Amino acid sequence: MAVTYKKLFHMLIDRNMTPAQLQQEAGYSANISTRLRRDYYVSLESVEKICRVLNCKVDDIVDFIPDNPEKEQ
């Protein structure tokens, strides 16, 4: 199963916040920012930091995509 953070980046646009500002406020590394942009897995700890800053839930910023959608149905 793959993951995407498109909802996170849409939320940042809606809140007029840059990824760099989020990184600074949440206190995670530039490596995590890169992983988010590339839709790579990040730790739950990092996701929790983001959710605290944005006052949102995990499903507000993360979507899980099945590797083979036909098998999931």
Rank of each mutant, 00 (worst) to 15 (best):
Met1Asn: 13
Met1Cys: 11
Ala2Lys: 14
Ala2Asp: 08
Val3Glu: 02
Thr4Tyr: 01
Thr4Glu: 13
Tyr5Glu: 08
Tyr5Phe: 15
Tyr5Asp: 11
Tyr5Gln: 02
Lys6Trp: 06
Lys6Gln: 12
Lys6Asn: 13
Lys7Thr: 12
Lys7His: 13
Leu8Arg: 04
Leu8Glu: 05
Leu8Pro: 01
Phe9Gln: 06
His10Ala: 15
His10Asp: 15
Met11Trp: 05
Met11Val: 09
Met11Gln: 14
Leu12Trp: 05
Leu12His: 04
Ile13His: 08
Asp14Lys: 07
Asp14Arg: 14
Arg15Glu: 10
Arg15Val: 06
Asn16Cys: 13
Asn16Val: 11
Met17Ile: 08
Thr18Arg: 07
Thr18Asp: 04
Thr18Glu: 06
Ala20Tyr: 11
Ala20Met: 13
Ala20Gly: 10
Ala20Leu: 13
Gln21Tyr: 03
Gln21Pro: 02
Leu22Ser: 07
Gln23Lys: 15
Gln23Gly: 07
Gln24Gly: 03
Glu25Ile: 09
Ala26Leu: 00
Gly27Ile: 04
Tyr28Asp: 05
Tyr28Ala: 06
Tyr28Gly: 04
Ser29Asp: 12
Ala30His: 06
Asn31Gly: 15
Thr34Gly: 07
Arg35Leu: 14
Arg35Cys: 04
Arg35Tyr: 11
Arg35Glu: 12
Arg37Lys: 15
Arg37Ile: 08
Arg38Ser: 10
Arg38Tyr: 08
Arg38Phe: 05
Arg38Glu: 13
Asp39Ser: 12
Asp39Met: 00
Tyr40Thr: 06
Val42Thr: 07
Val42Met: 04
Ser43Tyr: 05
Ser43Leu: 07
Ser43Asp: 10
Leu44Trp: 03
Leu44Gln: 09
Leu44Ile: 09
Leu44Pro: 02
Glu45Gly: 08
Val47Cys: 01
Val47Leu: 12
Lys49Asp: 06
Ile50Leu: 06
Ile50Pro: 01
Ile50Ala: 03
Cys51Val: 04
Cys51Gln: 08
Arg52Gly: 04
Arg52Trp: 00
Val53Arg: 04
Val53His: 01
Val53Leu: 00
Leu54Val: 11
Asn55His: 11
Asn55Leu: 07
Asn55Arg: 13
Cys56Ala: 14
Cys56Asn: 08
Cys56Asp: 10
Cys56Gly: 03
Lys57Gln: 13
Lys57His: 10
Lys57Glu: 13
Val58Glu: 09
Asp59Ser: 11
Asp60Asn: 09
Ile61Leu: 04
Ile61Ala: 04
Ile61Ser: 03
Ile61Arg: 03
Ile61Met: 05
Val62Cys: 02
Val62Glu: 03
Asp63Leu: 11
Asp63Gly: 01
Asp63Thr: 12
Phe64Leu: 12
Pro66Asp: 03
Pro66Val: 01
Asp67Val: 03
Asp67Gly: 08
Asp67Ile: 09
Asn68Trp: 01
Asn68Tyr: 06
Glu70Phe: 07
Glu70Cys: 00
Lys71Ile: 12
Lys71His: 13
Gln73Ser: 11
Gln73His: 09
